[in-house]
Amino acid sequence: MAELTSRQGGRVAVRKPQVYAWVQDYGVYAAVLALLLFNVLFTPHFLDASNFRTQLVQVTPIVIVSLGMALVIGTQGIDLSVGSVMALAAALTVLYLGYGWLPALIVAVIGGAVVGAAGGALVAYVGVQPIVATLALLVGVRGLANVLVPQLVEFRNPGLIALGSSSVAGIPVIVLIAAALTVIVLFVVRRTTFGRQVVAIGGNRSASELSGLPVKRVLLTVYVISGLLAALAGVLATARLQASDPTSLGLFIELSAITAVVVGGTPLTGGRIRVLSTVMGALLMQLLAATLIKHNLPQSWTQMVQAVIILAAVYATRKRGTR
């Protein structure tokens, strides 16, 4: 009976779903382009390289975190612990900086992976709801980071500072890293068995189980990747700040990351992952804030406009997601 309805529904309303589908697929790109065009026409100095670079550098941690978030959301999950993982990474980085910046970075990333594994194990093997499991980690890991490094610590490690502030061909290194990670995640989602399995599990978990997919292992891995990426974002943010600040680093970034994923058109109901659109989602929100600030509108305006965009994105996603 459900088959019948969906078939009939499809025939009656052919045009509308097409419009929604277009908005869902390309809406973010169109919005980013429109905003860029607006700025080119009406915002003085917008095309200056330094302005551009600032925008990109600022959005980098959000982009990296939201890549992992997109994977998690694709499985119908959510990862609230990412901000605290960034803080833990900042703490671990400064603690192990004595061994050189690269070993410190590796320790920090391992720390993030361990937190991700904890969350993933709770979700996949114990059966805790993702929002609850990662909420516990959000609180606990921030506490752990603060215990390790109770206050802001500045550092003078030239390697780490260079990582945060140097550029190659005029493009900041951390932006290049974010771009490389985007390409890797894109490849994983589109071209690997693992990526296909992630999407299938998000689309229908019991069907995936009956199809012999390693559901639990895949879920665990997804959270590990999210933790890993968040830790990397934490190290890069610390490198740029030239100080480790576990108290405030990454606060509320989970919300920015979820926003980027949602605005990019990945449904919270899982079964679909849109990597490039997620990056575009993060850029859109960044650009929007910058535009409104440049035109002397208060912060509160930015927040309200962002809310409208989130609702619009969810509405567009809903149309096709519910079929």
């Binding site: 296909r196 999407v199 299938a200 689309g203 229908n204 019991s206 069907a207 995936s208 997919l213 079964g271």
Partner: peptide
Amino acid sequence: AEGIIPTLSVRENIALAAL
């Protein structure tokens, strides 16, 4: 409930178990 993955294409659904 236990068969199709509604968010995926015909192609991905066929290939799923044999991936």
